[in-house]
């Protein structure tokens, strides 16, 4: 970190941040960059609504001081949605009826992408484990699990 400037990439674009390094990455994404995909649910790392990928790993953006991500790559649901993989996941969520109120979905989709990058053909247990940090109060999870398995099946070769 030079001259209190924090440089990182968000959805492929380089960003230079000069404010308080202790602000939560979630707030910088939502308020400074207008990326409102990541949601502020619990603010304590329990609900997963703020999930993003940081250097390819799913993390809770509410727990990350922005000053600690110097040189790292952030992917939010907005960026993922521009990719073939993202489109495949989002369509599967729609087709499987996995979305009701929608608040948890950006986080769920990011957890799904992180899973499929590591394990392109997961079984149900692997899916449930991968989304275990994401709470959904509408669906009871079954349709979400269906959606992830559907995305894996349809997207063969994408990951």
């Amino acid at each position: 970190m030079k001259d209190n400037k924090i440089e990182f990439r968000v959805n492929g674009e380089t960003r230079i941040y000069e404010g308080d390094p202790l602000r939560r990455l979630l707030d910088v994404l939502r308020e400074d960059l207008g990326l409102t995909g990541p949601k502020d649910g619990c603010g304590e790392g329990e609900c997963g609504a703020c999930s993003i990928l940081l250097d390819g790993e799913v993390v809770n953006s509410c727990l990350i001081p922005v000053g600690t991500i110097q040189g790292q790559e952030v992917l939010t649901v907005e960026g993922l949605n521009e990719t073939d993989q993202g489109k495949c996941i989002v369509e599967a969520y729609a087709d499987a009826g996995a979305v009701q109120c929608g608040f948890c979905i950006p986080g769920m989709v990011m957890a799904t992408e992180a899973l499929l990058r590591k394990n392109p053909s997961p079984d149900e247990a692997a899916v449930r484990k991968a989304i275990s940090g994401n709470l959904c109060r509408c669906t009871g999870y079954d349709q979400i699990v269906d959606a992830v398995l559907m995305a894996a099946d349809r997207g063969k070769g994408l990951w």
Partner: peptide, 27 residues
């Protein structure tokens, strides 16, 4: 502060505000 998963919760502030740490922080 390494992962921050305990400290960011212990010193959590109101939504959208930076955490209220009691002293200086070192990543």
């Amino acid at each position: 502060l390494t992962g921050g998963t305990d400290l960011m919760v212990r010193y959590e502030n109101w939504s959208s505000l930076p955490p209220r740490f009691p002293g200086s922080i070192m990543a």
